[in-house]
Design a protein around this nucleic acid. Structure first.
Lengths: 150, 150
DNA sequence: TCAATATAATGCGATATCGAACTAAACAAG
DNA sequence: CTTGTTTAGTTCGATATCGCATTATATTGA
């Protein structure tokens, strides 16, 4: 691989990193004190994918250490946004269920960040985002799979 | 803005977040114990942009709190990878210079991650990355500017 | 059957990151 | 000048995240 190819991937990952930080900041700014994007992300995952996930599944989904997920879930549980129930199929494990207030919290966050997204969309049209999406999806899938292969 | 537009931006930022985590993990895995991507990123910035930056400039460039940059720079200084000198133009301030060992550290990290990038490139061709880059750059610039406007 | 190994979650200590308060220097207005 | 305000960096306390070790349960294999 020529050096400019390495540099090219580096550049893209650099841009991705900056966009991640900026978008994270937009969402974070809309969350009430004491709640982080990590909390939102778990709730969002439980809604989008399906609740009843185990903590370990969640940790894997977010590439985070198990202990971090324990901590994040404790916060969500304390706030009443999730409920931790025993896993009937495995007594070592638990399953995480989102509550109605948890769902409301997630929806409120999404509504709150809408104006920010509109401001971005005003300059970067949705059709360009639409073109971007499948490329990013495939890149993500490739990297995700390669990670699992190790 | 229709709901699907909100969802579209959400999706893209979600993909971006996952790619960021995966690429960060690849780089992190190549760094010696005690060094994080945050350390590498600062060194990389000093090389790419120019060294002699002030800590505050660096903090802004990375969207991080000033105190975080103080901490990161202390680690780099302790390792001998940067040198902190007084800012002649402003006695409150400092300027950060990368050392030869700091440059070597950065270069080594880049070399080490090359195989990982090659593995990704084998499945996601460079020309697609090349198409992605300007779009991401523009999206980043827009979001960056909008942040400054507030 | 049961001993060895693997897995899920947690407890604990270390470090990263952050926000608030502080100090010193620079700047601005009178 | 000099006094009030802003700015650069740090200190300090709180919390997030991580790695390692531990406990409980599950799985495997002789």
């Amino acid at each position: 691989m020529p050096e400019n190819k390495v540099a090219l991937f580096f550049q893209v990952f650099n841009e991705v990193g900056i966009i991640e930080q900026l978008s994270r900041a937009l969402l974070q700014a809309q969350l009430p004190p004491g709640f982080l994007v990590s909390h939102f992300s778990v709730l969002n995952h439980l809604v989008r994918v399906q609740d009843g996930r185990t903590p370990l599944e969640l940790a894997r989904a977010f590439q985070t250490a198990k202990t971090t997920m324990t901590h994040t879930l404790a916060g969500l549980d304390k706030a009443g946004y999730v409920e931790m129930r025993p896993n009937i199929e495995d007594a070592r494990s638990k399953r995480v269920w989102i509550s109605d207030t948890g769902r409301a919290f997630r929806e409120q966050a999404i509504v709150s960040v809408k104006p920010d997204l509109e401001r971005v969309a005003a300059e970067f049209p949705a059709d360009r985002v639409l073109n971007l999406l499948p490329e990013l999806e495939e890149l993500r899938k490739i990297m995700d799979r390669q990670r699992d292969e190790n």
